[in-house]
Design a protein around this nucleic acid. Structure first.
Lengths: 209, 209
DNA sequence: GTCTATATTGTGATAGAC
DNA sequence: GTCTATCACAATATAGAC
C-alpha cells in the first residue's frame, strides 16, 4: 500500500524540490508541483498542510544534504590543500549539477531569516566544527595561526559565486554556454592555485589576521 | 505641471526600485509600489503599461548604475592594486548600502535570461573593456601575461559573495548582526591582502593561465 | 494626470464523495 | 489516500469619470 512506482510523499518532495529550487517560494506554484509529481493538487495539502510547510521541508532537506557533502570533505583527514582541491571539485559534482541549490538557499534565508534559522539550528550539523578543523590544520600543516572564517568564506566565494552568478556573468561578458562551461571547468584548477598562492603569502608574512 | 515634490514618474521608479530590489519580480506587489510612491495603483499602469515593463525599466537603470560605478574604478589610471582596494571599498559605499542590488541582478538574470540580456546589450557600457584594461595593467605593472577573466571573477566573488550570502552565512556560523558587520568591515583589508598574495605567486611561477 | 470602481484571472486552500 | 468541485481572496490590469 506504500508503493506505487515510489511512494507519493517522496514523489511530492522530489517535485517540490525541483520547482522550489528553480523558482523560489514566490515563483513556485502548487499546481506545478502537483503536475510534476503526477498527483492532484489537493494531495499536496493532505501531505503537507500548506505551501509554507512544504517549502520549509524542502529547505531542511536541501540544507542538510549540502552540509553533509561539505562536511564529508572538510572533516576528513586529507591535507588542507587536498581539501581545497576537493572543494573545487564539489562543483560539477554537486553544486553545478544542482546549480540552483546555492541560490535557493541564499534567497530562502534572505526572505525568511528567523524561521529558517531555527530550522538550521535544529539540525545536528554544526558548521562551526569545520572551522575548528581548518584552524587546526592551518596550524599543524602550515604553521599559520589565524581565524579561519575569512579563509573559509573566501573559498566558498571562489567556488560558489561563479555558479550562482553564471547567467549574469555570461550576459556581461558575452560568453556562450560552451565558453562558460569551459570557464567553469578551468576554475577547478585555477581556484586551488589561486588559493595556494594566497596562503603562501601568509606563511612568509604572518601579520594580519 | 511637472513637479510635485518630485515628478510622479520618478517617485514611481524610486519606489519600484526599492520593492523589486528587496522582493524580486514575483515577491513584489504593484500595490506596495503604489503605496510607497504615494500614488494610486492605476497610475502605475498609466506610466508603465504593466509589471513586466516596470521591472525591466528598473533592471535597466540598476544595471547601468552599477556598471558605471565599477567602470569608474576599473578604467581609471590608478595602479592595479589600488583598484583592488578601491573595489574592496565599493562594498559599504555601494554594494552594502544597496546590498540587495547584486542579488536582484543575479536573480533577475536567472529568471529572464533572454529578455534581460538584450537590455544589457542595448546599453553602451561594455565590461569587456574592463578586462582589456586589467590585462594591460597586469602586463605593464606586474609582468604577468594572462587572461584576466578568472582574476576579475575572483575579485568579484570575494567582494560580492559575502554580502549576497550574508543571511545564510550568519545562520550557519551563528553570527550576530554586530559580528557580521565587523566581519564585513575586516574584509576591506583582508581581500586586498589575500588577492595581493595570490598575485605574487603568479609573479614567481608564471605557469598556469 | 489622477482617481474610483470594477473586470479578470490566478492561486492557495478546503469540503466532501469515493 | 485520492479525486472533483469549489471557495475565497489576492493581484494584475482596465474603464471611465473628473
Amino acid at each position: 500500500m506504500e508503493n506505487n512506482a515510489q511512494n507519493t510523499e517522496d514523489r511530492i518532495l522530489e517535485a517540490a524540490r525541483t520547482v522550489f529550487h528553480r523558482k523560489g517560494f514566490n515563483g513556485a506554484r502548487m499546481q506545478e508541483i502537483a503536475t510534476l509529481a503526477n498527483i492532484n493538487k489537493a494531495l499536496l495539502y493532505y501531505y503537507f498542510r500548506n505551501k509554507e510547510l512544504l517549502f520549509e521541508r524542502v529547505f531542511n532537506d536541501t540544507f542538510s544534504q549540502l552540509a553533509a557533502k561539505i562536511g564529508d570533505i572538510l572533516m576528513s583527514d586529507m591535507p588542507l590543500m587536498s581539501k581545497v582541491e576537493g572543494f573545487g571539485n564539489l562543483y560539477p559534482n554537486f553544486i553545478s549539477e544542482h546549480s540552483y541549490v546555492m541560490q535557493f538557499l541564499i534567497n530562502a534565508l534572505q526572505d525568511r531569516p528567523e524561521r529558517l534559522r531555527d530550522i538550521i539550528m535544529k539540525q545536528n550539523i554544526n558548521p562551526c566544527l569545520f572551522l575548528e578543523k581548518i584552524k587546526k590544520q592551518l596550524r599543524d600543516e602550515m604553521g599559520i595561526d589565524m581565524d579561519p572564517l575569512h579563509l573559509y568564506v573566501n573559498l566558498l566565494a571562489l567556488v560558489i559565486f561563479p555558479v550562482v552568478a553564471r547567467p549574469l556573468l555570461q550576459s556581461i561578458f558575452s560568453l556562450s554556454d560552451e565558453k562558460m562551461a569551459m570557464f567553469l571547468e578551468e576554475r577547478k584548477t585555477i581556484i586551488p592555485v589561486f588559493f595556494n598562492n594566497a596562503m603562501k603569502g601568509y606563511e612568509k608574512d604572518k601579520s594580519l589576521v
